[in-house]
Design a protein around this nucleic acid. Structure first.
Lengths: 246, 246
DNA sequence: GGTTTGTCACCTAGGTGTAAAAAT
DNA sequence: ATTTTTACACCTAGGTGACAAACC
């Protein structure tokens, strides 16, 4: 007798992508979705003594189309989407290429960048089971500041400390002298337009509100900069964990 | 300095309403929703020595329109709805008339009956924030067996025992000799058509699958009847707790 | 050697009935 | 006297980094 059990230990993305949208048609229905694109075709390794990520090889991403995470509030009217901060805090990442739960599949030690898609709901199409981007009616946005490097183990202590201080689920690892919660990352309104945004001047327009960390974001925001863990982070790229078990 | 905190201790419905639908148009979009209707305008009290609910007064329900719980998978295609057992296990009840969280408001010591609504999605209408039934395109179903009486404290031990044995969240109260889980209530396929169902011969048709308990349901199902708590239940009407705190 | 896996204690978040207290 | 509220221990369910073992 033999039972084969496949397990995929999956991790959430933290901090999560949070955006605010503008200029949607109030009565039009939209889906809002997220995916994660490779930044380049390089594999990286972290050199501890110089505190830098160095290129360590090449990878061919071309044959993989990224998984789409549709925001659970979809579909919803433009009016409702614009009224709230849209949080992707339930996005789950895995490095298991065989994942069959629809989670976003990434390779460890590579650089990625999340994208947010605003998808106009065409009543003639059934988007309720949507798994890839439609050919029309999509506006996509991404932000340089949200680039991150995937890891299966943290490569430097500052990242670890920041995640322990900020993520409520890691409270058990906080310093005894500092176990009061720091709260969630404060929303940051940015009028810093990025290239993709230009095409959105018509139907919709997306502002960054609160983001996966990057050194730029942290160093620009005075409240965040007060915290040691965050100010230290200025020197380092953002990292995520992605694990899987067989 | 004075802070007013309003808390509403809300309870789920257990066992939850579970249904299966048939004869939907596979490619048509539907919302599926649930509400709870008063059975009559009587207030009841439980007479312990005769194990019966007796009329104990009158109540005017006429000015209250019931809250609608829209199934979180809505909207969805007929094909997808028909493929699954549709479970309303996250429905929450309260006796707090001031509830502002959209939960279903009931009065304690009254009799109620859940209804299930299959709502055809009209692309011209925005149903994403739906809070009451549309005038057209709705098919509604209810089942005599799912009548229940609301309470804030259980009125007899058999009901308590059944809920402790069946509800995973009450595991801590199980007998030490019987703390293995009994599993969820087995789905019961019934071709027992009820009056409302007649009108559904066209667009859609609903079969009862697994339900809030009633004596009839329990006594007819051989596997359930094996368990003491369930067989005892035959003599008693079903009860739910509904609490609120101020 | 660097990287990944699997298990763990420790959390968050929230659903149970209990029993005493409070309300009606 | 009956019904409701409140605080509680005890669960389910699942998200953390730590750490040792396994992998390559």
């Amino acid at each position: 007798m033999c039972v084969i059990i496949l397990l995929a230990a999956i991790r959430r993305m933290f901090p999560s992508v949070r955006v605010k949208v503008r200029n949607l048609e109030p009565c039009q229905q939209y889906y809002i979705a997220m995916d994660v694109m490779p930044v380049d075709s390089k594999r990286y390794r972290y050199v501890y003594h110089s505190s830098q990520w160095m290129v360590a090889g090449n990878t061919d991403h071309s044959c993989i189309s990224p998984r789409l995470y549709v925001h659970p509030d979809s579909p919803c009217t433009g009016e409702t989407w614009m009224r709230q901060v849209i949080s992707f805090d339930r996005v789950k990442l895995t490095n298991n290429e065989m994942d069959d739960k629809g989670h976003i599949i990434l390779q460890s030690m590579h650089k990625y960048k999340p994208r947010v898609h605003v998808i106009r709901h065409d009543p003639r199409m059934d988007l309720s089971q949507i798994r890839s981007l439609p050919a029309e009616g999509v506006h996509s946005f991404s932000f340089l500041e949200t680039e991150f490097t995937t890891v299966t183990a943290y490569q430097n202590q500052q990242i670890t400390k920041l995640k322990i201080d900020r993520n409520p689920f890691a409270k058990g690892f906080r310093d005894p002298g500092r176990n009061r919660p720091l709260g969630s990352l404060p929303p940051l309104y940015s009028s810093h337009f990025l290239p993709d945004l230009a095409e959105a001047s018509g139907p919709c327009c997306l502002y960054r509100y609160s983001l996966p960390l990057s050194s730029q974001l942290v160093s620009r925001h005075p409240k965040l900069a007060e915290d040691t863990s965050d100010s230290l982070l200025r020197q380092f790229p953002w990292q995520l964990t992605a694990n899987h078990c067989l």
